[in-house]
Amino acid sequence: MSLPPPTAVLEGGRKAAIQSRRKNLTFDKVSFMAVFLGIPLAIYLVFVIWPFLQAFVYSLTDWSGFSPNYKFVGLDNYARIFTDDQFLKALSNNVILLIVVPLVTVVLSLVLATLVTVGGSSKGQVKGLRNSSFYRVVSFFPYTIPAVAIGIMWGQIYDPSGGLLNGALNALGLNFKDYAWLGNTNTAMWCSIFVIIWGFVGFYMVLFIAGIKGIPAELFEAARIDGAGRFRTAVSVTIPMIRDNIQTAYVYLGIFALDAFVYMASLFPNAGGPENSTLVMSQQLFFTAFQRGQFGMATAMGVILALATLLFSGLVFLVNKLTGGSEGGRL
């Protein structure tokens, strides 16, 4: 490879810096660490972790959620979850989301971010596309809309009789009259996935643009001088340099895909879509908690959800490490 190996250079420098700092525990350093870690952690532990830990205890009970009484039932709730065919169905739907949503969103937003930042002239300094800020600003718009509103809006767009989609398809001469996009098992999931991606791409596009702008210009210059084309530059400079951002995005999207509550609940109010084809775990959890009054069971589902998410994150970190990510995963 004729390109300078960027990560290696930076890693070396960073490790050296860290090494040298570790040696002397000055007052400056101790006070710094205490304040910088102590305050955020204290708030976090009291208002997030502690309530979650209490909630975890509920998962071992038969608590209804409303009454002041409950009994401990050990791991019964966990055992029962895996005999609940609806929960298992929801789990498999979440797995589909988990595979598709992060992949498509990350790839699409990476492509768009690359077009915006390095789509300009191939000569001289790396330049963004002319007037590209318009695209960046516009793409972000969906993220500003509350998910509930997005659900209502797209519900109308997919409407069989008066919706934008069927209207457009019919205008093109295709006969889609009365086709219920959200009412058929073979389209409901994919239509929902599209809505989710629509809502998220702008977010990650902006994030990746920020990441790409943080890359020292010299790396691009060097690649140029070495005669690397645009595609090559993107693959060998951009992606490795914003690797941690991509990993973060992937994990966060995965967390979202394992939840997906607001989108699914607003696209399919009160139900799990046609033949439960869009039912997700968090919906099942919500129904169990509030309609069935089995809060203990619902909390156990929440714990499973959290474990699944952590497992997924661990997997992403592992993959990043195996493919040569900087400093490997943090897990």
Binding site: P160, S161, D178, A180, W181, L182, G183, N184
Partner: peptide
């Protein structure tokens, strides 16, 4: 039955 009800919001259906 008017087709497509499973993909129509009930408010929209009722207005139809």
């Amino acid at each position: 039955f008017k087709p497509g009800g499973s993909g129509t919001a009930f408010t929209a259906a009722q207005a139809q």
